[in-house]
């Protein structure tokens, strides 16, 4: 469904991605691990059209989407939950969700259903729906960022370190929502530092180093034999 073929990305003159190839099938949860600064976030940004690949192809459902504007990618069914969450701080929780709801071809009834679904999964968002997004705690902001992405009814969600800096209770909730999305058939490309969680929820895992994918294996294999994890992540 989503394929990166030999993607190279630059920030100005610095060469960040050196030929990354990654694949995510329909409904598949795929992990992307690696130390800080190896290019995981840049990979997601390249998919989302926030930086342009200088070389290589990004293909989504048979279409070469390299260089497409982000809003068109969102309409195609790609949703993005960035590392720093980037919720709209001055918009209320409800308005944050509306940014993904007010789009063409969606009925009022469907909008209500989608809202109900996230309010059920994240009751705290219902409580705080009229509160400015900036007043939420870090964990609540993370939930809002994921909930907001869900409003787009995406086919794939690019999740960048959703559990970073969260308390264990919050991590459990995030983990739960990943399961919910997976059950609904939404594909997920999950960037994480939390290795145990990634190995549990993913089917396959890519390990990156210095802007390249160095290892690729079924999550199960990595759970049993952690040599590669030790080698590339030092944990």
């Amino acid at each position: 469904m989503l394929t990166l073929e030999n993607v190279h990305t630059f920030y100005g003159k610095s060469h960040i991605l050196h030929g990354v190839s990654v694949e995510v099938g329909p409904g598949e949860v795929v992990g992307l691990l690696g130390r800080n600064g190896v290019g995981k976030s840049t990979t997601l940004k390249t998919i989302m059209g926030l930086v342009r690949p200088s070389q290589g192809r990004v293909v989504f459902e048979g279409r070469d989407i390299g260089g497409w504007a982000p809003h068109r990618l969102a309409h195609l069914g790609i949703a993005y939950v960035p590392e720093d969450r980037r919720i709209f701080r001055l918009l209320t929780v409800y308005e944050n969700l509306r940014t993904g709801l007010d789009r063409g071809g969606i009925t009022e009834q469907r909008k209500t259903e989608l809202l109900e679904k996230v309010y059920e999964n994240f009751p705290v968002l219902r409580e705080r729906r009229n509160q400015a997004g900036g007043t939420l705690s870090g964990g609540e902001q993370q939930m809002l960022a994921i909930a907001r992405a869900m409003m787009l009814e995406p086919k794939i969600i690019l999740l960048d370190e959703p559990t970073e800096g969260l308390m264990p209770r919050m991590v459990t909730q995030i983990r739960h929502i990943v399961d919910v999305l997976h059950r609904e058939g939404v594909a997920i490309l999950l960037v994480e530092q939390n290795v145990p969680m990634t190995l549990e929820v993913s089917r396959r895992v890519y390990i990156m180093e210095k802007g390249q994918v160095r290892h690729h294996a079924p999550a199960e294999a990595l759970r049993e034999d952690q040599t590669m994890i030790h080698q590339y992540l030092g944990v």
Binding site: L50, H71, P82, R89, L90, T99
Partner: peptide
């Protein structure tokens, strides 16, 4: 508030 994130939300 956030041009890039707005675009990523399909705006």
């Amino acid at each position: 508030q956030d041009r890039v994130m707005a675009a990523a939300m399909g705006i």
